[in-house]
């Protein structure tokens, strides 16, 4: 499903003393199968934008198209089928759990969407494996699990409706390095194996660089930059002006180019490979 924003404005509480324009004339396109990342600091309009993708909010003016769905200022009755196709993992999704057992919580979505429950139940073991949980958690209360496990249950509850688009709002917030790595590789495999469109909101520029193929930068409700992450991060100064940084490895490469004239480029190498590149460039420079 392709996602297109055309001149979207959004204003909270319009025509009141508290009115606040959160999105200003946003136009963008996310192709099917993209891994798009949204960056911008708190209050830049990221969350507001995300909520347009499954019709939690509707534009004050302009149009959002998600596949065949069209969201405008008018009310759309097909919203439920849209929500089934666009899964959203909110920040700290473990806070949305409420059922007595993990199984019932995961099946909450399918039930609401009126899906075939037998079929959904059959899928449970596969989904659990995908998110990295043992099947014996199904009959346990979600509240007995660790924070990291609870988050996986919440993600499973979104995946089970088989969405085409998966939106994740800071899915690694509060996790330790191991937990972070696991969630990021889970998202990677959903993107590659299931060809899901991924939309990630994150503060970790490193993750944007390593995983996404499209980056959108928001600042004060406006879309200020977009493109491939490597290109976007080339404009270090512009990003700094709006209070954002670039990934550390790119910072290092820039500094080494400027200070030492080392001809190093970023081509998705791992940190230790980058170290190797630097070492080789140094040796080459020394031999010259």
């Amino acid at each position: 499903m392709e996602i297109v924003f055309e001149n979207v404005d959004f204003t909270y509480q319009p025509n009141s003393p508290f009115s606040h324009q959160a999105l200003k004339n946003i136009s963008l396109r996310i192709k099917h199968g993209d891994y798009a990342a949204f960056i911008g600091h708190t209050g830049s309009g990221k969350s507001t934008l995300l909520q347009h993708l499954n019709g939690i909010l509707r534009p004050t003016s302009g149009t959002v198209r998600i596949g065949d769905f069209e969201l405008t200022t008018k009310k759309n009755n097909a919203i439920k089928s849209l929500r089934r196709k666009v899964g959203v993992v909110f920040q700290y999704p473990e806070h949305q759990l409420f059922e007595e057992t993990v199984e019932r919580d995961i099946l909450f979505g399918p039930k609401n969407f009126g899906m075939d429950m037998e079929e959904a139940k059959h899928k449970l073991p596969v989904i659990l494996e995908e998110v990295g949980l043992p099947t014996d958690v199904l009959q346990r209360s979600p509240f007995e699990l660790s924070g990291g496990q609870m988050r996986r249950v919440a993600i499973a509850g979104v995946l089970i409706t088989d969405p085409n688009v998966l939106i994740l709002d800071e899915p690694t917030a509060g996790l330790d390095p191991r937990g972070r790595k696991q969630i990021m590789s889970l998202i990677d495999s959903l993107h590659k194996k299931k060809r899901m469109t991924i939309i990630l909101v994150t503060h970790h520029m490193e993750d944007v660089l390593r995983h996404a193929n499209q980056a959108f930068v928001l600042s004060e409700g406006e879309l200020v930059m977009q493109g491939e992450p490597v290109e976007v991060f080339q404009e270090e100064e512009r990003l700094q002006d709006i209070g954002l940084g670039i990934p550390e490895e790119l910072q290092l490469i820039n500094q080494l180019q400027q200070a030492l004239g080392l001809p190093i480029t970023y081509h998705h190498q791992s940190p230790s490979e980058l170290g190797k590149d630097i070492a080789q460039a140094l040796h080459a420079g020394g031999n010259r």
């Binding site: 909520q51 499954n54 939690i56 929500r83 806070h95 949305q96 979505g109 609401n112 509850g157 979104v158």
Partner: peptide, 16 residues
Amino acid sequence: EETDKISKAQASRGID
């Protein structure tokens, strides 16, 4: 704020 957040999350899971 919390109520707002949770109701949005549950609405995304198809609740009306």
